[in-house]
Design a protein around this nucleic acid. Structure first.
Lengths: 138, 138
DNA sequence: TCTTAATGATACCTCTTTTGTATCAATTAC
DNA sequence: GTAATTGATACAAAAGAGGTATCATTAAGA
């Protein structure tokens, strides 16, 4: 599931990619929040995870802000998903916690869920942030 | 997202498919609940949706119960998902409610979500219940 | 006809997760 | 030194998921 957290994180990275291409390596969180319709304080929480995940860098103090840690062609949607939360875009609780269900060893449903999850993840891995920064997009 | 509701509904249909193949066209909800580790009263709620969705049929009174409405080869996982809830296995709230976000007309993320959603749905449509009732499976 | 076993309908409850807010400390440019 | 910015942490509100309870209705069979 793509939660708001994941969605907002992706928006933020997209925004930073746009600035990155224009040579603006650092932008304030407030600017990104305004630009991408993200609640400012919520976004501030997400910044931490993206920094911890190594996708963005931040600088404190006056004229500080955040910026991509590397070229947008080297960041995929999957990277953002991973950095945002421990559970990713998991299709089913059975994916991350198969042991919590005694049926899992023989469960045909789990098998199918795993196949679908694999497809979703591999698609997310193929989509680079740079691919999404086309003119007219936002 | 595959919620417990969806998961339980799939389990129920799988169980009924097993009985169906053994010639038992009607089984009590209590038996299915016990067999598939589903809380009985919760399952009762799900029965209604599957009946409304035309996947299963029910008979009241003594010796009543539930059973598949058609051959398991004519029921897919997608059918179960659709019958279970209005939102299906939606990847993102943006899929079912794009109008709720003013960004959607130009949103590159929404485009990607839609592509992924389409892949998930088409996979679910290819998996028939009969495919999943192999020996050793449950 | 009476009893029993089953579903139908509806309402409710509780816990977790998601989403969002608030506060204060630390840092940096000028 | 001041103003602008992020860091860290805690809190709160809202929504959703998961589960329970109750009573009505129906049908089989003694």
């Amino acid at each position: 599931m793509i939660t708001r957290e994941t969605d907002y994180s992706m928006r933020m990275v997209l925004s930073l990619a746009g600035h990155y291409k224009r040579g603006e390596k650092t932008v304030s969180s407030a600017d990104v929040a305004g630009e991408m319709d993200i609640p400012y304080r919520f976004l501030r929480k997400l910044v931490k995870r993206l920094v911890d995940g190594g996708l963005i860098e931040s600088r404190r103090g006056k004229n500080g802000g955040v910026g991509l840690a590397r070229d947008p062609s080297l960041i995929t949607l999957f990277d953002v998903v991973q950095a945002t939360g421990p559970r990713g875009v998991e299709m089913s609780p059975c994916i991350s916690e198969p042991k919590s269900c005694k049926r899992s060893p023989l469960c045909q449903l789990l098998r199918e869920f795993q196949v679908i999850q694999g497809r979703v993840d591999s698609h997310l891995k193929r989509v680079r942030i740079s691919d999404m920064c086309k003119p007219g997009a936002r």
